[in-house]
Simulated assay, not measured.
Amino acid sequence: MNSLALFTRLVTASLSGQARYPGSALMLTFGQFLVTGIEMVAVWALFHRFGDVQGWKIGEVALFFGLVNCMFAIADALGRGFDVLGTTLLRTGDFDRLLLRPRPLALQLMGYDVRVSRLGRLLQGLAVIAFATVQAGIAWTPASVAMALFALAGGIALFLGILVVQGTLSFWTIESLEIANVLTYGGVEAAQYPMALYARWFRYVLTFAVPLACVAYYPVLAILGKADPLGAPAWLGLVSPLAGFVFLAAALGAWRVGVRHYTSTGS
């Protein structure tokens, strides 16, 4: 069985297990939809009160919000295995079982526990993008759709890379989850707003350390046809999502180092 077929089988098995309890899966999905929906209501309330923030309108910010939540929803569904590596697989010794299989470990973990509930956040993100389209008057051309899909792919790679880093840290510490949450959930919150609103040092962090600006801010500027208040060239948004793939490649390199240092449970 090749890698793609194996991944498909793992995902199918994970979804089939959740389908045995459809009520639970539906409530969890609806819960995800409501949580992100409440966050968007808070953003709407802010702009409804003040009209705009430093020249940014609600429709423009909604595009950031929707696109980033779509990125994270897909990455979170695929990266669940890395998310629970330290809290479940390493502590129980189940990770050793994965090591015995002649298939890539990263592939096995990506198909380990694909949660259907993440569909709630994805649907919410798509709904907010539709809202942004109406509010900002976005004309979706083939070029802008391609730009959005490119940004989406780069963002998925970036957030998946963050989850891989979280799993890698689990080889040395059992308390890596909260550290990674700063980058995952905290990163989602930060990327939902234009980088121009943040202090310079924080913009540097979100551009060069964890390149959230590269997969959200600059591509959205290109889609909106809006000049960057910070002075970045217009072409930057066309190539910046590549930073997400670079981050993922670096994370997988660190992952391989962590696996080589893994010494099992001893049981």
Rank of each mutant, 00 (worst) to 15 (best):
Leu221Val: 00
Asp83Met: 15
Arg97Ile: 01
Val11Tyr: 00
Ala222Asn: 06
Phe47Cys: 07
Arg256Val: 01
Arg203Tyr: 08
Thr263Tyr: 02
Leu4Phe: 15
Ser24His: 03
Ser264Cys: 02
Leu26Ile: 07
Leu252Asp: 04
Leu26Met: 14
Cys214Thr: 07
Val68Cys: 14
Thr12Phe: 03
Leu160Gln: 12
Asp113Ala: 12
Met27Cys: 05
Phe131Glu: 08
Ala73Lys: 15
Val215Lys: 06
Ile162Met: 06
Ala130Pro: 05
Arg80Val: 15
Ala25Ile: 00
Ser144Arg: 15
Phe208Lys: 12
Gly37Lys: 04
Leu206Asp: 03
Arg118His: 15
Leu224His: 14
Pro22Met: 11
Leu183Ala: 15
Phe150Gly: 12
Val164Ala: 06
Pro194Ile: 05
Ala213Val: 02
His261Arg: 12
Ala222Gly: 09
Gly31Ala: 09
Thr184Phe: 05
Gly161Tyr: 05
Met1Ser: 01
Arg203Ser: 12
Ser240Glu: 02
Trp235Met: 08
Thr88Glu: 12
Ala213Phe: 05
Thr133Phe: 05
Gly120Asp: 03
Ile174Gln: 14
Glu60Pro: 11
Leu212Gln: 03
Ala75Asp: 12
Met27Gly: 02
Tyr21His: 11
Ala180Leu: 01
Leu160Trp: 02
Thr88Cys: 02
Asn2Pro: 08
Leu15Gly: 01
Lys57Asp: 04
Gly125Ser: 08
Ile74Met: 15
Leu163Val: 03
Ala234His: 14
Gly186Tyr: 02
Val11Ser: 05
Gly137Gln: 12
Gly66Cys: 09
Glu175Asp: 13
Val68Glu: 11
Tyr262Ala: 05
Glu178Phe: 04
Leu10Trp: 07
Trp172Gly: 13
Phe33Met: 07
Met147Tyr: 02
Arg101Ala: 06
Gly187Asn: 12
Leu177Lys: 14
Thr88Phe: 03
Leu248Phe: 13
Ala209Cys: 15
Val257Glu: 01
Glu60Arg: 12
Trp140Met: 08
Trp172Pro: 03
Ala139Asn: 12
Ala227Trp: 00
Gly231Val: 06
Ile179His: 11
Ala157Trp: 01
Leu46Met: 15
Cys70Tyr: 00
Ala77Tyr: 04
Ala45Val: 04
Phe7Val: 02
Arg256Gln: 08
Leu4His: 08
Tyr217Trp: 10
Cys214Trp: 10
Phe47His: 14
Ile179Val: 14
Ala151Asn: 07
Gly37Phe: 00
Asn2Ser: 11
Leu224Tyr: 04
Ser176Asn: 10
Leu197Cys: 09
Phe47Ser: 06
His48Ile: 00
Glu60Asn: 09
Ile174Ala: 14
Ile162Ser: 06
His261Tyr: 02
Leu6Gln: 07
Ala130Lys: 04
Leu122Gly: 05
Val215Pro: 15
Ala249Phe: 12
Gly120Asn: 05
Arg97Ala: 08
Phe131Gly: 07
Leu10Glu: 15
Phe159Thr: 04
Asp52Val: 00
Val35Gln: 13
Tyr198Arg: 13
Phe30Cys: 12
Pro194Ser: 07
